[in-house]
């Protein structure tokens, strides 16, 4: 073997660096291409569409922010936006309280590994893997006022006055859907919380127990602060999910957010504005795209703020 000069070594190092960069590019390019085609391109075209007038699917004149002005400030249009927004807020808050609250309780209970906890873990998670459309349809049948399972059970239990047309009343339609959503999804935050609790070293909990903390104090003072990263993830995912909520309200009460727009959501409003609904409206791509852009900007901004705020209280587990 002949001796290598300094230049040889440097060349070899450069070649190694190049090989590594090529390999990185090889790995990164396909996902970046996919992201570009399926995320940035549609996002860009939505922005582009939103500044034109549309005749069905034919692009008309450039109208600047006119579509945004219409959906935001024309009372007959903006009232739908604000009503849907209000409903999405209700969904977010309720899901946080009902679904994630329940998930937290379940996770804390499961973390203590009661008899048969593995079975319960599977049972709670099972609905998560089912299709949302199927679940929406199935619960729509359960909640049918005439022959639905829920009202039949209530009547059998002598609670005739409780046998309401759950999906037909403005007061009960949205709460019913939120509960259905909770039934569908509760296993997911439960599992995430459970994993977070399992990640907390047992010593902390034993130390707190020796310090005289009750189970409640342990949950509040030790487990809860230490599962902050999981809470961040769940809050942000819940927020995004709540403001993109579509399948359950669509399947259960249709595109118009029946009854009386009490279950209208931004997603439904966007869909029927952009694509129209057979029974009531025709498509308006301009206004629909403007809505899509607004919804995206809102979700993006608030998710970012949530992430920032919540990450600040996260603790690295030593």
């Amino acid at each position: 073997m002949t001796a290598m000069t300094d230049a040889d070594f440097r060349r070899a190092i450069r070649a190694r660096t190049l090989r590594r960069n090529l390999w990185l590019a090889f790995l990164l390019l396909p996902p970046m291409a996919v992201m570009f085609i399926f995320i940035f391109l549609p996002m860009g075209s939505a922005v582009l569409y939103s500044v034109y007038e549309w005749d069905g699917l034919v692009r008309g004149d450039f109208v600047g922010l006119e579509n945004f002005r219409e959906v935001l400030f024309e009372p007959q249009k903006s009232k739908f936006l604000f009503n849907a927004f209000k409903n999405n807020v209700i969904v977010f808050v309720s899901v946080m309280v009902v679904q994630n609250g329940l998930a937290l309780v379940l996770a804390m209970l499961l973390a203590r590994e009661p008899k048969g906890y593995r079975f319960y873990q599977v049972v709670f998670f099972l609905p998560v893997i089912l299709s949302t459309v199927i679940i929406g349809f199935q619960w729509k049948l359960f909640l049918n006022p005439v022959f639905g399972l829920v009202n039949n059970l209530l009547r059998a239990a002598g609670l005739d006055s409780w046998a309401l047309p759950w999906l037909g009343l403005p007061e009960t339609a949205l709460p019913s859907m939120i509960l259905v959503n909770a039934w569908h999804w509760v296993g997911f935050p439960t599992l995430v919380f459970l994993a977070a609790i399992h990640r907390i070293p047992k010593d902390y909990i034993e130390a707190a127990r020796l310090d005289g903390a009750s189970e409640w104090r342990i949950a509040r003072d030790i487990i809860w602060p230490l599962m902050a990263p999981a809470v961040t993830i769940i809050v942000v995912l819940t927020f995004i999910g709540a403001f993109n909520w579509f399948e359950i309200p669509y399947v259960m009460n249709g595109l118009e957010g029946a009854p009386g727009y009490s279950t209208d959501m931004l997603g439904l409003l966007f869909y029927r504005t952009a694509f129209g609904s057979i029974s009531a409206t025709d498509s308006d791509f301009g206004a629909g795209s403007a809505l899509a852009v607004l919804i995206f900007l809102f979700i993006f901004t608030v998710s970012l703020i949530f992430t920032r705020l919540l990450t600040a209280r996260e603790i690295e587990l030593a």
């Binding site: 070293p201 020796l210 310090d211 230490l226 587990l317």
Partner: peptide, 25 residues
């Protein structure tokens, strides 16, 4: 009172809070 091998100091509490936790409870 017990001192753990890992110390088990509550990572989200200051030294003062760690030391006073039992008393506060």
């Amino acid at each position: 009172a017990m001192v753990f091998q890992s110390y088990a100091l509550y990572p989200h509490m200051t030294v003062r809070e760690n030391m006073s936790y039992a008393l506060r409870v």
